[in-house]
């Protein structure tokens, strides 16, 4: 089966004054359908930049990102918006719920953009919220909920439209350790159920233990790419991946 995400020699260079900062310096990656991938690295390593490139939020300076068969690096803003609407989901560190809308309305938002009528989308939102245990909070505004609850609404919002890939940028960064556990479990379980590819960025290495695969970024390059024992193919391939990846780079 072809990979769902393919990254080719990706470079991102920022200009700060007269200085050029290479945030990403030639990254090659392939992510399989249904993988739960964790991108880790120290602050400033370029991991968030990588996620932004993968999700098409930022244009790379060089190289290409393919999702499915589409080269999203060549898309216009307009095409990207439509592509995100159809195939991608997002979870943010600061939840980014719309304050004026209730939990259910927030979850239904991606469906609204797709043009699904109110009744249908609110019903879908209700199902999704019940799945993550917020069935009683449908009518609550974000300000009336705790951080963990807000992030669960954010998760429901990412999953409601059944996207192909979900990107999460430090989704537990603002949560305490107990809630972090809950949220991570929930994301993994939902992704597995729906066979959704999940790409998450975090700077806490121990969180990565949940993932199928851990990609470590340093100075804008892939330092290591490890499949954990959680990985569906882990039994067969063991630690070979890292060697093949290194070969490719050379």
């Amino acid at each position: 089966m072809p990979p769902i995400i393919r990254v080719e020699n990706l470079k991102k260079i920022y200009r700060i004054g007269n200085e050029k900062v290479k945030a990403l310096n030639g990254i090659n990656l392939e992510i399989e359908r249904g993988e739960f991938v964790c991108i880790v690295g120290a602050s400033g390593s370029g991991k968030s930049t990588l996620l932004n490139q993968l999700a098409g939020l930022e244009k790379p300076s060089k190289g290409n990102v393919y999702i499915g068969k589409s080269n999203i690096s060549q898309m216009t803003e307009k095409q990207l918006a439509l592509f995100r609407q159809k195939y991608l989901g997002f979870i943010f560190q600061s939840y980014n719920l719309l304050p004026a809308l209730t939990a259910a309305e927030n979850v239904a938002l991606p469906l609204m953009f797709k043009g699904i009528n109110k009744k249908t989308r609110l019903a879908a939102a209700k199902v999704q919220l019940e799945k993550i245990g917020l069935g009683e909070r449908l009518g609550h505004k974000p300000t009336e909920m705790s951080g963990g609850q807000q992030q669960r609404v954010g998760i429901a919002r990412a999953f409601v439209a059944k996207p192909k890939v979900i990107f999460a940028d430090e989704p537990t960064g603002n949560l305490d350790s107990k809630t972090t556990d809950q949220v991570l479990q929930m994301m993994m379980q939902l992704a597995r159920e729906e066979n959704i590819t999940f790409v998450m960025v975090t700077h806490e290495r121990d969180l990565a233990a949940y993932a199928d695969r851990i990609i470590t970024i340093k100075d804008g390059q892939v330092l290591s790419d490890v499949k954990t024992q959680n990985h569906p193919t882990a039994q067969r391939e063991q630690d070979n991946t890292i060697h093949t990846e290194e070969k490719k780079e050379q």
Binding site: R84, F90, L98
Partner: peptide
């Protein structure tokens, strides 16, 4: 946020 969530 609306843009990221796919609002055209």
């Amino acid at each position: 946020v609306m843009k990221v969530l796919g609002c055209e």
